[in-house]
Design a protein around this nucleic acid. Structure first.
Length: 230
DNA sequence: AACCAGGACGTGA
DNA sequence: TCACGTCATGGT
């Protein structure tokens, strides 16, 4: 069932190339958001610690905001040479807030980022454990799993509000399903494959943006007729 | 112009 | 454990 959904999504939308990284025009950092700015079908990313760090910062910044806003914040940070641990640690909290203001919740996110940076630089080895990530204030289950999956190459499934919404609409979960329940549902039914895990989550987000863009589902989800239980 | 976005935390029951 | 308020900007 879930595998069939994955196949349908991949066939219809193609590889998403997550996690998006900041791209350049010449030497000038511009965007990540455009599809061409991703790296669809190339699963070799991230290539270095700087990219790993960038993904983690993006994971914190994207909490309850759109990627469009996150992208602007990331570009600001990149231009300040702060999208790597050393640069970030040198950046004052004031400058940090200024740079990420567009992504919202800048007071708390600036703390989260600073605290995460300390953990990142203190890590003896990659990948960190899930518990280590969760110990940082501001890193919850989804953010931790996103970091593990996209920054550190650990095949762990990411559950977000969109995923929950889709599965609920399809009747595959009930409203009281917890994060761990939904995560287990995927991990017990999908091959433990890094590429599939990365792609599946990204595809669910893309699908949800098309059909579940507000809290009361209005548009007809094409998955529901094919795979829905009701 | 109200509604909401790729959540997480602190609080009180 | 769990429900609920809070955090904040900017696009649609």
């Amino acid at each position: 069932m879930l595998k069939d959904i994955y196949t349908w999504l991949l066939d219809n939308y193609g590889p998403q190339g997550w996690w998006p990284l900041v791209t350049y025009k010449g030497t000038n950092p511009t965007k990540t958001g455009a599809l061409k700015g991703y790296h669809p079908g190339d699963y070799s990313f991230p290539h270095n610690d700087s990219e790993r760090f960038e993904i983690c910062i993006g994971a914190i910044l994207t909490q309850n905001t759109t990627w469009l806003q996150v992208e602007k914040a990331l570009v600001n940070l990149k231009r300040m040479n702060a999208l790597n641990v050393k640069g970030m640690k040198k950046l004052s909290v004031g400058k940090l807030k200024e740079a990420i203001k567009c992504a919202g919740y800048y007071n708390q996110k600036s703390k989260y980022i600073k605290e995460f940076s300390t953990l990142f630089s203190n890590l003896e080895k990659f990948p960190p454990t899930r518990a280590e990530l969760l110990s940082v204030n501001g890193i919850g289950e989804e953010t931790a799993d996103s970091m593990l999956l996209y920054a550190f190459g650990v095949p762990t499934f990411v559950i977000d509000a969109y995923t929950r919404r889709i599965l609920l609409n399809l009747g595959l979960i009930t409203a009281d399903a917890k994060y761990e329940d939904i995560k287990a549902l995927f991990e017990n039914n999908i091959d433990n494959d890094l590429i599939i895990y990365q792609e599946f989550h990204a595809l669910l987000v893309e699908h949800a943006k098309r059909y579940y863009n507000n809290k009361n589902v209005t548009k007809k989800c094409p998955l529901s007729t094919k795979f829905g239980k009701n």
